[in-house]
């Protein structure tokens, strides 16, 4: 559990970060909290000759909530998310999800930016950000660009981010309606057996909009457009819930691991989604 030798860089600003990235290409990786990258380096599954620590780069640790959107800097930790009152009022699903990530020690170090940028299908924030239709800001030597979370993930650890880009912020349109983040895991610190992020708005007695994303049930997070669509216009009766679950099951592609075989995971995904929808609806 000892990583191969690496150079440690600690630039003071983003220009410094980009300079190292430009010089070393995919031999360099940026690190925020390090909770995904360092274990992979210690297992020698990730070879990172140049490690760039973002901790001294200013301006990446702010949470800003205004009338239309929320902006979360890449170095904001899970603990920051939990503690931020204005954020909890504006988007309570963030706190509900963050409280289900690992344990307090990890949450003091683990960041939102690292969680969404690493592309680990087990991470909770990517699916959550897809549900909330967030946008990721990427900064590279060629400038800055925004990529929707729903377009960001390509495969396990493969994302739309280029090797010389740094994910600096997450922007979320202010959510409305009811919400739920439901997660089944074997124990504290485990990835989800299945997790569902649901955000629902209600108009009259019927569902006006629904966004649904699933975690750790494919090699990327799964935003299930069809599952959400199955709820819109319904009163969320049993038939609608069944249709949403069926649509979601059509979109996911779980694999067998120590948590269980595919049939089990699909069944649990359905149960978890149903519970998330019911809880979100009760809050809508």
């Amino acid at each position: 559990m000892i990583p191969a030798a690496f150079e440690y860089h600690r630039p003071q600003d983003m220009a410094g970060v980009l300079a190292v990235l430009e010089e070393h290409g995919d031999d360099a990786r940026v690190m925020a909290g390090g909770h995904s990258l360092i274990p992979m380096m210690k297992l020698r599954m990730a070879d990172v000759p140049h490690l760039i620590d973002l901790q001294d780069v200013g301006g990446l640790s702010d949470i800003a909530v205004d009338g239309a959107s929320i902006r979360i800097g890449a170095l904001v930790t899970q603990a920051d998310i939990i503690d931020h009152q204005a954020l909890a009022a504006a988007a309570p699903i963030l706190r509900e999800a963050a409280l289900q990530i690992a344990d307090p020690q990890v949450r003091y170090m683990g960041t939102v930016g690292g969680n969404v940028a690493n592309g680990d299908p087990g991470n909770d924030m990517p699916g959550l950000m897809q549900c909330l239709d967030a946008t990721f800001t990427l900064v590279g030597t060629g400038g800055e660009r925004d990529v929707p979370a729903r377009d960001f993930y390509e495969a396990a650890y493969m994302t739309a981010r280029e090797d010389d880009e740094v994910l600096t912020a997450v922007t979320i349109p202010l959510p409305s309606g009811g919400y739920a983040y439901e997660k089944q895991k074997r124990k504290i610190g485990d990835y989800a057996t299945a997790a569902a992020a649901v955000q629902i708005t209600k108009s009259g007695g019927t569902c006006a909009s629904a966004a649904i994303a699933m975690t750790n049930l494919s090699d990327t997070p799964i935003y299930s457009d069809a599952a959400g669509a199955a709820l819109v216009g319904t009163t969320l009766d049993d038939a609608a819930l069944k249709a949403a679950v069926a649509a979601m099951l059509n979109d996911i592609d779980p694999t067998e691991d120590n948590r269980g075989p595919i049939a089990f995971k699909k069944h649990v995904a359905g149960v978890i989604l149903r519970r998330a929808i019911e809880r979100a609806w009760s809050r809508a």
């Binding site: 089944q184 074997r186 057996t193 948590r259 269980g260 075989p261 089990f264 069944h267 649990v268």
Partner: peptide
């Protein structure tokens, strides 16, 4: 008796 074996 982990989750999946109980489920099974």
């Amino acid at each position: 008796h982990d989750h999946w074996r109980i489920w099974r």
